[in-house]
């Protein structure tokens, strides 16, 4: 067992990046899980990945490429789902398959050894810079403010968007604002956390928290705690057992979900 790694700056940065990224991803995860748009996180993560590759090929900023593609994914899914011709899962599935196809296409077109692309896919949490940690901290703060300032609007839209509109709230704007926030968090997290890990951190902690509470406030807090715990326990486990950090974080967050589901008071609730 080798704990000497904790003395290094790269590990301290990884711990901070994991905390900020884990908490922010988990908080937006609460939005997608409660709005029953869980797969949207997966679709946006792939869109952001494809966007970064596209921008790399064109010699532009990968961040702007990710941002453009993930917001385009939100813009495509939202109205398609709202028109009522399909349930939301169908447009999300279409956008997901398109972005997956584009990601493969851009991988094929990418010149050179493609290490940059693989970094985006797996993330590089152990090589996160101080500037990236600061960006993730700013993002986590912005997400916390969003949840605190718009809590009653979030609650209303989660409960029933049409009713929120009927009582005179700008429900559509809130709904799309929340979807854009999901896109932004995934885009900002992508370079350090990676395309595959980011949707694990969006989905698993929120899904685990959903099993354990009937309070939306507590669900946000629990999800954030689970998000941070997943990344920290994953980093610790990977350092102790010399395993890949991303994969270990995925396994830990899945274990937390399984434990939450096993002890869930909601297991006894029958679907009406």
């Amino acid at each position: 067992m080798d704990l000497s790694l904790w003395g290094y700056e790269f590990m301290r940065n990884a711990v901070l990046a994991g905390a900020f990224g884990g908490a922010a991803c988990a908080a937006v995860g609460v939005l997608v899980v409660t709005m029953q748009l869980s797969f949207l996180g997966v679709a946006i993560a792939h869109a952001a990945f494809a966007g970064a590759l596209c921008a790399t090929i064109l010699g532009a900023s990968p961040f702007l490429g990710s941002l453009g593609f993930s917001l385009a994914a939100v813009a495509a899914v939202g109205p398609l789902a709202d028109r009522g011709e399909f349930g939301p899962d169908t447009p999300i599935g279409i956008v997901f398959s398109l972005t997956l196809g584009l990601a493969f296409l851009f991988m094929g077109l990418l010149p050179g050894p493609r290490a940059e692309a693989l970094d985006l896919l797996w993330g590089s949490i152990l090589t996160v810079s101080r500037a990236e940690v600061a960006l993730l901290a700013g993002m986590a703060l912005a997400v916390a403010l969003l949840v605190i300032l718009f809590f009653k609007e979030i609650q209303a839209v989660i409960f029933h968007r049409e009713l929120a509109r009927a009582v005179g709230m700008p429900a559509q704007a809130i709904h799309y604002g929340l979807l854009i926030a999901v896109g932004l968090v995934i885009t900002v997290s992508l370079p350090s956390i990676g395309g595959l890990l980011v949707f694990t951190l969006v989905l698993n902690p929120a899904a685990a928290a959903y099993q354990l509470t009937y309070s939306l406030k507590r669900m946000f807090l629990l999800a954030a705690v689970f998000g941070v715990a997943s990344t920290w326990a994953g980093l610790l486990g990977s350092s102790l057992l010399r395993l890949p950090s991303g994969a270990t974080i995925v396994l830990v967050s899945t274990a937390i979900f399984i434990a939450a589901a096993a002890f869930s008071p909601k297991r006894r609730v029958k679907k009406r």
Binding site: A156, I158, L216
Partner: peptide, 29 residues
């Protein structure tokens, strides 16, 4: 509206739902 289908796992209480009636009047922020 006529009988909404509400997910039994929804993390929202009866009081939260009734309070929703005041939210439009209260306004953003």
């Amino acid at each position: 509206p006529q009988g909404l289908r509400i997910d039994p796992r929804m993390p929202i209480s009866v009081r939260d739902v009734v309070r929703l009636g005041a939210c439009g009047r209260v306004g953003l922020l």
